[in-house]
Every structure is written in structure tokens, then in C-alpha cells.
Amino acid sequence: MKLSFTLNGVLVRADADPDERAVDLLRDLGALDVKEGCGTGECGACSVLVDGVHKLSCLLLAAQLAGRELTTAAGLGTVAAPHPIQRAFAEHGAVQCGFCTPGMTIAAAALLARNPEPSRLDARRAISGNLCRCTGYVKIVDAVCAAASELSEAPGGETPGAEDQA
């Protein structure tokens, strides 16, 4: 089936099988920052924002993306122009193997869009659907809180995920 949607600000058209998963389509389209760790919604590595809401692309059908706005980690920022969340992850030691990191930054972006001043517990709750086996989460929480401070100091900073309801 044919469908089109916005991927990181760019309108894409794709042809997907009815039972194709969103994660497979996204990776086929070159969004290799979307990782798969389990396929059952238990790890969060495949996290994306769908119309600003944090969802799992392993539990979405590609067909469900039609007409939506998708944001993946690469859509938050790049090495040359990182999003404050991404820079905070790098600077606060929140990255080790890095396989969970794109999904973690998506969870963080969804949090900061609705809660600009999260407590450490808020940050832990927000990333509690994203497993990390390397860090013990301490520095990830550090990074999320540091990014929150930076974003709230700089009113120009924008985070996708404005419509997240959680």
C-alpha cells in the first residue's frame, strides 16, 4: 500500500506491505538511527515521536504512519548542529554503547516538551520504557535535567513533542 508522511521534516512517499512494521519501513528509508532491540515493546530502542507523541515503532504498522509527522533522533539534531538534549547526553557521559541512546533522546524530548522543569524522578519515569544496560541511568538522568535547564534558560530552544499527552 502507498502512503506518505513527514519524516524529520521531509515529506516521504513509501510503498509498504500491510503487515510491515514501522521500524522496518523507517530503516529501509534510511532512518538507521531507529534501532530494534526486542520487537515486543520491552526495550524502547525503536522510540520515535509520532505527531509529537513518544511511541514504539516496533509496535506500529507502517500503514499507521500515513499522514503523520515522524521525528527520530536524527530529526532532533545532528553532529554538526546537535539538539541541546543530544549535546547534554554527550557532555554528561550519558552515552556508552549508544544503542539505546537515540530512543532515550526521543523519550527525553517528549518529556521536556510537556514538562520543562522535570525532577530527577520525572526524568526517570519518562525514560522508564527505555532500557539501558550500560549506564545504570544516572548520567542519562543528569543529561536530561541539564538539557532541561539549558532549554528553559534559552527561550529559543524548541523541542518536538509539543502534543505529547503523557
Binding site: 529501509d28 538507521l32 538511527d33 531507529v34 534501532k35 527520530t72 533522533a73 536524527a74 532532533l76 539534531g77 545532528t78 553532529v79 546537535p82 539538539h83 541541546p84 543530544q86 549535546r87 547526553f89 554527550a90 557532555e91 554528561h92 557521559g93 550519558a94 552515552v95 554503547c97 549508544g98 544503542f99 541512546t101 537515540p102 533522546t105 539549558e150 534559552a154
Partner: peptide, 29 residues
């Protein structure tokens, strides 16, 4: 933004932005 004094891990920013490539990301289509 003031950069914290020690430079971050050399691999950190590429991983944080999802730009780093892991094994399967290199696999030909």
C-alpha cells in the same frame, strides 16, 4: 552554553545524534 571542561567521549556525540553506525547499519540492502 558553557562547555563543561573535559571534552566528552570521542564517540558520544555521534551516538547521541543517532549518526553512529552499528553492524547492521552497514549491511547492504
Amino acid at each position: 552554553h558553557l562547555r563543561s571542561s573535559p571534552p566528552p567521549r570521542a564517540d558520544a556525540l555521534a551516538k547521541a545524534t543517532g549518526a553512529e553506525r552499528y553492524v547492521l547499519d552497514f549491511a547492504p540492502a
